[in-house]
């Protein structure tokens, strides 16, 4: 799933370590989220949304799979 995490984080001028610390996850998790290699749990998605004061849909871009 694509997301705007890196863009939002850079816009706020914070490092991956700082975001990870604020959310209580590892820096590698933030890196994997930004690369789109890892999809977060709904709890982490809510934490991210609260942190950036946005809705989950504003951060994560859901694209339906074409069959």
């Amino acid at each position: 799933m694509k997301n705007r995490l890196e863009e939002l984080r850079r816009a706020r001028g914070i490092r991956q370590e700082e975001l990870a610390d604020a959310l209580g996850v590892s820096r590698q998790t933030i890196g994997s989220l930004e690369n789109g290699r890892y999809n977060p749990s709904i709890l982490l998605a809510f934490k991210l949304a609260r942190y950036f004061d946005m809705s989950i849909e504003d951060i994560f871009i859901y694209e339906e799979e074409v069959r």
């Binding site: 590892s26 590698q28 994997s32």
Partner: peptide
């Protein structure tokens, strides 16, 4: 503690 409770880990 963060490393052990991290959801990705």
């Amino acid at each position: 503690e963060i490393e052990t409770s991290d959801e990705r880990n």
